Simulated assay, not measured.
Amino acid sequence: MSVLFVTGTDTEVGKTVVTAALAAVQLSLGRTVAVVKPAQTGIGPDEDGDLAEVRRLAGDVATYEGVRLPDPLAPDTAARVAGLELPGLAEQRGLVDRVAAAHGVTLVEGAGGVLVNLGENWNLIDLADSVRYAGHQVVFVVVARAGLGTLNHAALTVQAIQARALEVAGVVVGAWPAEPGLAEEQNLLDLPRVTGVPLIGRVPEGAAALPVRAFRRGALDWVPDL
């Protein structure tokens, strides 16, 4: 079964909106889709988080959350502050494994950048490697900013993933401005050159505020069928 890992070059780069767009495309093709969020921070027990936003924007997707923590920090830091123990790598891998076995496409959305610890001494790359070892086809999508600084951050993220012999399908710009400047326009040319992987999509800035039907139609142009 296919498992698509969505990571970002940093926090607040548009991972959740890109995840929703990717899910919307898969749903439009008649596939069963699930989204897993191993760790959600900065959210209370009864609040809607990233997975609720994915469901709102994409539609009928099954969603699974590994753990949620109240402070807006890296998961391992938030757990330490809260005095809580995070699920282990084997437990989170088991969750993804079960979900992937029951759905045509499973998306796993990370927290912050790809090397942020989701548990004690393990990160999203470790989880992806473990899921691959369990027999699933694994591929990454890297969500990047549009403007200055994105080249270095995107290249480092791609290199970290590829260092573990994991596949990167490409880079998606998480919030493409309505009036891009010179840096943004040139980054469209430079991102593939610097990262060594294709630029496979651009989600317009403010896409999450669109009516859901417009979002789902737009997703077909913003991101590819992977």
Rank of each mutant, 00 (worst) to 15 (best):
L188W: 09
A207Y: 01
N187Y: 11
P180E: 06
P87T: 00
L73I: 04
T41F: 05
S2K: 14
V105L: 07
V158Y: 01
V18Y: 11
V142T: 05
A100E: 02
L57F: 01
T63W: 02
V6D: 06
I161L: 02
S2I: 09
L151Y: 06
A23P: 08
A155S: 09
V33F: 04
L29S: 06
G8R: 09
L188S: 14
V139K: 07
L57K: 01
V158H: 01
L27W: 11
L166I: 08
V54N: 03
D126W: 05
P211Q: 09
T9L: 13
E47S: 08
R202N: 02
V131C: 08
V131A: 03
A78N: 08
A154Q: 02
P75I: 11
T106W: 10
T106Q: 10
E91S: 09
N152C: 10
R31T: 07
A62R: 11
V171M: 05
A178S: 14
A100P: 07
V171H: 04
T157Q: 06
I43H: 00
D46Q: 05
V168R: 03
T19Y: 03
E12Y: 14
R213A: 10
V105G: 02
P72M: 07
E205N: 10
G181N: 15
E12W: 11
G66E: 00
D46E: 11
Y133G: 07
V138I: 06
A111C: 15
T9H: 14
P38M: 06
T19A: 13
A219C: 02
P204K: 03
L89V: 13
L156T: 11
E85Q: 10
D225G: 04
W176G: 04
R56V: 04
V139P: 00
S2Y: 08
L191W: 09
A175E: 13
L27K: 11
Q159R: 14
S2N: 10
L22V: 10
G147L: 14
N121P: 00
G104A: 11
V99H: 01
V139N: 01
A146R: 11
V173H: 04
I161A: 03
G196Y: 06
G44A: 14
T16A: 12
L199P: 10
Q162T: 10
I125P: 04
T11D: 15
V173G: 06
A24K: 13
V54F: 03
G66I: 00
E120N: 11
E109Y: 05
P177F: 14
L220S: 10
G104R: 13
A163F: 08
E47W: 08
D190M: 15
A24D: 14
A146M: 11
V6Q: 05
P38D: 01
L86I: 05
E184P: 04
Y133W: 14
A101F: 03
N121K: 15
R31V: 04
R31P: 07
